[in-house]
């Protein structure tokens, strides 16, 4: 490891801790009240699930329209586990999230192996159908609480937990994408035939990327259950999947920071427009259409947003101006 890398790590970790400290302090002194705290936590969950979808759609290039299904599987698995066992809080939280992710990943494998042979729209349709089946199953099974929902889940997630979970997921995704595995995944989106012709086992990496995506969506779902304390199967419908899709597209397919910004923005815009709820979704939909027509690659495109780079550039600029 050279020095540049280490200093990069130090910068990132410092930035992460500083942001955490600031927000935590604002929550403590009630500048961020419970209401906004709640929005932040939901936004964090949205970031996790949308980032997982970005891996499948933005990086791997596979149209996935059923991520609410994976999320639901993770949510119910984690919640049922936590209800069933009696362990210390953080053990239950961590084990529950991992278990939720693993079960979602297994479903991703089961659906992915046959479905990923299909191209484009067809994969979208199969994942859509899968999501619907999961929702209907949750509505009808008795051990999941059926249509009444699953109640009595312990609240294990608050701002601190969700913040570090988001950091973990994002760090994982960055490290994963910027490796030989990530490059293999990117090459599949670019040109599957060319990827295969330079020695990438494309089928393996399609399934692999999809399973990792399902795993993370499951973890996000688990976090949702541990925050809301109740799971309503009706929530995990097609429109919910579409919401994540919208976040990914708005932020830019293939930009994780774009996903973060879009999820945060949408979470807050949604809440501000809540008072005019009837209009809210109309505005939302109109914005989406207009954005697609005029800037179809999303806000950031494939670029990543970096606070450090921005600061560097800014300081350079001022230096040059000063020199003049």
């Amino acid at each position: 490891m050279d020095k540049k890398v280490i200093s990069g790590y130090i910068k990132n970790i410092t930035a992460i801790m500083v942001v955490y400290a600031i927000i935590f302090y604002l929550i403590q002194i009630k500048v961020i009240n419970n209401y906004y705290n709640g929005i932040l936590i939901l936004a964090g969950i949205y970031i996790i699930v949308a980032a997982s979808l970005n891996l499948a759609t933005g990086y791997l290039g596979q149209l996935a329209l059923g991520h609410a299904g994976f999320m639901a599987i993770g949510a119910y698995t984690a919640a049922l586990f936590a209800i069933a066992v009696d362990l210390p809080k953080y053990v239950e939280l961590v084990a529950g999230l991992i278990l939720g992710g693993v079960v979602a990943g297994i479903f991703g494998l089961i659906i992915g192996i046959p479905a990923l042979r299909l191209r484009g729209d067809y994969l979208g349709i199969v994942t859509l159908g899968f999501g619907e089946i999961i929702r209907i199953a949750l509505l009808n099974l008795s051990f999941t609480g059926g249509a009444a929902g699953l109640k009595g889940i312990p609240r294990y997630v608050n701002f601190t937990e969700i913040y570090f979970l988001v950091v973990l997921v994002i760090a994982f995704l960055f490290a994963f994408i910027r490796s030989r595995h990530g490059r293999a995944i990117l090459s599949i989106k670019e040109d599957e035939i060319a990827a295969e012709s330079v020695g990438i086992p494309t089928t393996f990496y399609k399934v692999y990327g999809f399973v990792v995506s399902a795993f993370i969506a499951g973890v996000g779902g688990g976090a949702l259950g541990f925050y809301q304390r109740i799971l309503d199967p009706k929530k995990f419908n097609f429109m919910f999947s579409v919401e994540f899709f919208i976040i990914v597209v708005l932020g830019g397919m293939g930009s994780i920071t774009g996903t973060i910004l879009a999820a945060l923005a949408l979470a807050f815009i949604n809440e501000f427009l809540y008072s005019i709820d009837e209009l809210r979704l109309v505005i939302y939909a109109l914005t989406l259409i207009i954005l697609m027509i005029f800037k179809s690659d999303g806000l950031l495109g494939r670029k990543e947003f970096s606070l450090i780079k921005l600061l560097n550039r800014f300081s350079k600029k001022t230096k040059i101006e000063n020199a003049d």
């Binding site: 979208g124 429109m239 597209v249 979704l281």
Partner: peptide, 12 residues
């Protein structure tokens, strides 16, 4: 994919 999103948006 842009056209698809637009269709979803139109539906909403």
């Amino acid at each position: 994919i842009s056209a698809l999103i637009t269709a979803l948006g139109m539906s909403m």
